[in-house]
């Protein structure tokens, strides 16, 4: 294993996993819907980082195309909930 892979596997991934658990804790605890969505949103964005790291560790760069889709839909989820909170009905 090269230095890059060692660092990714033994430094970056554990740190990321810890922060995932913290995000999910907030998503579970957060008193309001907005808190939960915010935590979920940050969790989604951070998972996109995992995608990049894992595709280097698996040694298959082509898998990284998934990142962009995750970012797109994480934003879309924000927007739905914002719209729902603001209007109540979505199509208006």
């Amino acid at each position: 294993m090269s230095v890059v892979e060692l660092v990714l596997a033994f430094v970056v991934l554990p740190i990321l996993s810890t922060s995932y658990i913290l995000y999910l804790l907030v998503a579970y605890r957060g008193p309001t819907i907005s808190d939960r969505v915010l935590a979920a949103d940050v969790f989604f964005y951070s998972v996109s980082l995992l995608f990049g790291v894992a595709s280097i560790l698996i040694r298959s760069p082509i898998m990284s195309a998934c990142t962009i889709v995750l970012v797109l839909w994480a934003y879309a989820l924000d927007i739905y909930v914002a719209k729902y909170l603001e209007r109540g009905e979505m199509g208006d």
């Binding site: 889709v69 797109l72 839909w73 879309a76 927007i79 719209k83 979505m90 199509g91 208006d92």
Partner: peptide, 16 residues
Amino acid sequence: AALAVVSVLLAVVYSA
């Protein structure tokens, strides 16, 4: 499915 975000956002961000 990736393009579906356009249809969703058009309906949600602007309006029907």
